[in-house]
Design a protein around this nucleic acid. Structure first.
Ligand SMILES: [Zn+2]
Ligand SMILES: [Zn+2]
Ligand SMILES: [Zn+2]
Ligand SMILES: [Zn+2]
Lengths: 155, 155
DNA sequence: ATATAATTGAGAACGATTCTCAATAACTAT
DNA sequence: ATAGTTATTGAGAATCGTTCTCAATTATAT
């Protein structure tokens, strides 16, 4: 197996093993693809990327691994309105860090922005607290996305 | 055709006709279903509800109508992570008004909340302006959703 | 009433995701 | 290292929400 790059392999492996799951080359390949290829990848894109290093990989395994990583909170899954789920590392302390999305409804481009993350995060925290108190919800994650038309598409 | 209830039929009809489209019993039925049945309905739910009044209705027509209404900005479509699109009236001045969503990942319940809408809307406005300036985006809509576990599910 | 073009319902088709199952391989305890 | 236990795998079938096709219908303008 090739070494990991941007994510900590020991951390990932430990996290996976800690939940009684096994570390396999297929899962390594998916983790590598996620950290190399960057953000908001579809399962198909992860598959194509991971299969280059691990040709025997099956698409179903990619789906299963992405589901597992999502359950463990290591990956976040989200939709942008085109009937394909997107996946990216959920690590808020990583290189990319926590960000939100700007989606062009014309060309489907997705822009990660962090520009207003600080104010947004602050408001989110207090909102989460309020909602938690009022509705008895234990909030685990949030999605903030803006939809519109990008510059190239005539925005 | 039965009369509309919570939404203004003349407004809807005018809006649809204004775009060179025709007003039909099928579209009436969909509009009625949306206003009677409340928020975050799946296409299937809209279909079942509308078909009670207009038994000849086809599911494909419901999808087409929801798409049309979404294009016209009368309806908003969103996902909550269960592979089924949800639809609800987008009328910010209506009875329900603009709101955001709280989604239980265990029982899939969706709670509409407006409690912090004011602060959120304020921040959104300035964020939209900033993003618009920096990325040349013309922002048309946004999605804010919190995911977690509801009280009944052990939140 | 007639003409024109939009709309419809039914079912086929599509595509993303999940399921099935026998074969394989990761971990555990010797 | 060995063997046993059991999670994981790949391949393809199956599922299911959504879209497409097309001939028949119908809303609207004249
Ligand atoms: Zn664009
Ligand atoms: Zn992203
Ligand atoms: Zn619940
Ligand atoms: Zn709602």
């Amino acid at each position: 197996m090739s070494p990991h790059k941007e994510h900590n392999p020991n951390c990932c492996c430990r996290r996976i093993r800690g939940h009684g799951r096994r570390m396999t080359p297929a899962r390594h390949a998916v983790l590598d693809a996620l950290s190399e290829r960057g953000e908001h990848l579809t399962a198909e894109e992860v598959f194509r990327s991971a299969a280059r290093r691990y040709p025997n990989l099956g698409l179903a395994t990619v789906y299963r691994t992405l589901e597992l990583l999502t359950e463990l909170g290591m990956v976040s899954r989200f939709d942008t309105g085109d009937d394909k789920a997107r996946y990216e590392f959920a690590d808020p302390t990583g290189a990319k860090g926590h960000h939100h999305h700007l989606v062009c409804t014309s060309c489907r481009k997705i822009i990660d922005y962090k520009d207003f993350i600080k104010e947004e995060t602050e408001l989110l925290r207090s909102t989460e607290e309020g909602l938690s108190r009022k509705y008895g919800f234990k909030i685990n994650s949030h999605v903030i996305q803006f939809y519109g038309v990008c510059r190239e598409c005539g925005g």
